[in-house]
Amino acid sequence: MSDPMPGRGFPSGEEWPRQLIPAITVEAAEYFAGAMRGELRIQRCTECGKHQHYPRVLCSHCGADAIEWITASGRGTLYSFTVIRQNGVPVFKERQPFVVALVDLDEPGARMIASMPTVEPAEARIGMAVRAVFRPVSDDVALVDFEPAD
């Protein structure tokens, strides 16, 4: 797991708009606490063995209420992506174009959407290896971005 590092393309801390900071829901407290430490915390079902993101109280694959938390490797494969070239929200508009990706984590069953603010749009490729980086935007929320792993 890499050390916490701020994203280079999107702002962190006070520069990130408050209205784009998610509320820490009861289910997601563990996820955000991990992200602040530079750990990608996801859930694993002890019944079916599959993983899930985002956090819930039941397994979204089999319905079991047998959820445990694990620290994911933070590594995954780019399942798909788009280059956002038009977003009216100022913090994004000022930084477009940028890549948003769907990442299949190495832990089976878990897919997550994330921005890849440091990757050049022309360099993004479906199937590329990526890793999580953590971008604190408040005292208790860090957003998880991805960057090329190689």
Binding site: F10, L20, I21, P22, Y54, T82, I84, Q86, N87, V89, F92, R95, Q96, F98, V100, M112, I113, A114, S115, L143
Partner: peptide, 11 residues
């Protein structure tokens, strides 16, 4: 989980 990534409806 989605909006803070900068994804749009078109995206």
């Amino acid at each position: 989980w989605e909006v803070p990534t900068g994804i749009t409806l078109v995206g």
